[in-house]
Simulated assay, not measured.
Amino acid sequence: MPETFVDLGSVTAPSGVLVLGMALWIDYWPELGRPLSERARTVAAPGGGHFQEQECEAVAVPAADDRPLRVRACTSPSPFDEEPTIAALEVSLHLPWPETADPSVPVRLGDLPVDRCGMVIGDASGLDVWTGMDGEPADGLADVFYWGRYADDAHAQFGGERIAQYGVEGPHGWLDLPLAEAAARAAELTAWRDREYGRGLLVSIDKHTDDHRFRQAGWQHPLHVGAIEVGGCQVLGIEWDQGDHSIRHHGERGAGQVYPVTLHADRDGGTVLRWTIPPYDVDDDE
Rank of each mutant, 00 (worst) to 15 (best):
L89R: 04
V6N: 11
E286C: 12
P222M: 02
P103M: 07
D102F: 01
V144I: 04
K207S: 12
A60H: 06
V258M: 12
S37W: 03
E252N: 06
V272A: 04
W97T: 06
D139V: 01
L189C: 06
L175N: 08
Q257N: 15
D211A: 12
G159M: 03
G218I: 09
E252G: 08
D268K: 05
V282K: 15
V129Q: 11
E286V: 11
G126K: 01
A45I: 02
E55D: 15
C117F: 15
I205K: 05
I247P: 04
A138W: 09
D284F: 12
T276Q: 14
G49S: 01
Q52F: 07
T209F: 08
S125Y: 09
D143R: 08
V43P: 00
R162Y: 11
D210R: 02
E252I: 03
L8T: 06
F51N: 02
Y28H: 13
W275M: 05
P98Y: 11
L89K: 05
A44F: 02
G170T: 09
R149L: 14
G231A: 01
L175C: 08
D241K: 09
D266R: 04
G110Q: 03
T276E: 15
I205M: 05
V144S: 01
G16V: 02
V168G: 13
S246G: 14
L179D: 11
S104M: 09
G270I: 08
D241V: 03
L223H: 09
M119P: 03
P68R: 07
D281M: 03
A191R: 14
G251V: 04
E82G: 13
P98V: 10
L236A: 02
E31K: 13
P46K: 01
D194M: 04
A40E: 00
R70M: 08
F5A: 10
G160W: 12
L89A: 03
G140H: 06
H264V: 06
P35M: 11
P103K: 07
F145Q: 12
T262D: 13
L179I: 15
G110E: 03
G48Y: 01
G251I: 04
T42C: 02
K207M: 11
R267G: 15
Q216W: 12
H221A: 01
P84M: 10
E57T: 08
M119D: 07
G226A: 03
D115N: 06
Q257R: 15
Y197C: 11
G16S: 01
G232N: 04
E188R: 14
A191M: 07
Y166V: 07
D244L: 09
V120C: 03
D268W: 06
L223W: 09
